[in-house]
Design a protein around this nucleic acid. Sequence first.
DNA 1: CTCGAAATGAGAACGAGTCTCAACCGCGGG
DNA 2: CCCGCGGTTGAGACTCGTTCTCATTTCGAG
Lengths: 160, 160
Amino acid sequence: MKDVAKHFELFLRQRSLRLTRQREAILKAIYGTHRHVTAEELYELLQKAGDAKALRISRATVYRTLSLLAEGGFVQALELGRDRGTLYEHTLGHEHHDHMVCMACGKIIEFHDDELEQVQAAAIRRHGFEATSHRLNVFGTCAKCQEKGKGSAAGEAQAG
Amino acid sequence: MKDVAKHFELFLRQRSLRLTRQREAILKAIYGTHRHVTAEELYELLQKAGDAKALRISRATVYRTLSLLAEGGFVQALELGRDRGTLYEHTLGHEHHDHMVCMACGKIIEFHDDELEQVQAAAIRRHGFEATSHRLNVFGTCAKCQEKGKGSAAGEAQAG
DNA sequence: CTCGAAATGAGAACGAGTCTCAACCGCGGG
DNA sequence: CCCGCGGTTGAGACTCGTTCTCATTTCGAG
């Protein structure tokens, strides 16, 4: 986290941007949670935290900073349908991973598989495409919810 | 296409829904293009086409029908960031495929790889998850744009 | 400390998508 | 072939995530 702050400062300096209290607070906030948060959640979180230090942060600043952090690779946006807003997760200290979203309980599970990455990369290359990033989102039912659902009613959920 | 209309009629009948001229027109429109279209594009398209037949279709109906078609598995939604709206593609006659999005020219390339699918399925199963669907979106530069970019300026684009 | 430029706050604006509800019309029954 | 029930539609209001505007504040180099 100390490290991250350093990196962020450097990143800003490189682009002649300023290190403001707001930006610091936002970086700290998103690195202080292990969850996937929306801009709004982060905003509310910062409202509370900020009261103590008399530091008000507007919604606009949260959005702006989140974009900045995404550009710098400090956070990553996750888009899982237009119903919820964009979710953010911090990236430093988390290697690339994919997401499984449980349609029953809403849990988001991160996973990583080397073989999968390799096969993916190969398939993409085979098509002459040069990938800079990729996102795999899996929708379905997590282990826990499979248990729960065994006797009782069934679920729905579908698409491709 | 004739086939699809039949299937759709059946689908509606099973759910005691009605086959209206609007629904027919929308189904026909989305099966009449090979592109990925937004609800808005489809709406405009239908405005023109409808003038001839004096059939006006409202935006609401386009959205409603698109959802219905998605439920029935006739179309599939593609979400590639909040900047554009949701894209739709018809599914019947198209097996499952993933998407590569060129950040330079905006082209969307569909591809499919059996090995990839298998490895994916295995990785997911290994985590005790039961998948009902998944989406792999790859962002980068298509072969054509790689050529173009070779001598001149570079591109940006990034994320995970 | 000074000053210019970047950053912020508040709220207006935007836009994709949804909702409302009166008018409409598929479609099964008579 | 007409009737009527209730699903469907159109128009536009509405929602809500996100971006924009612009006056004011605040970094931070000198």
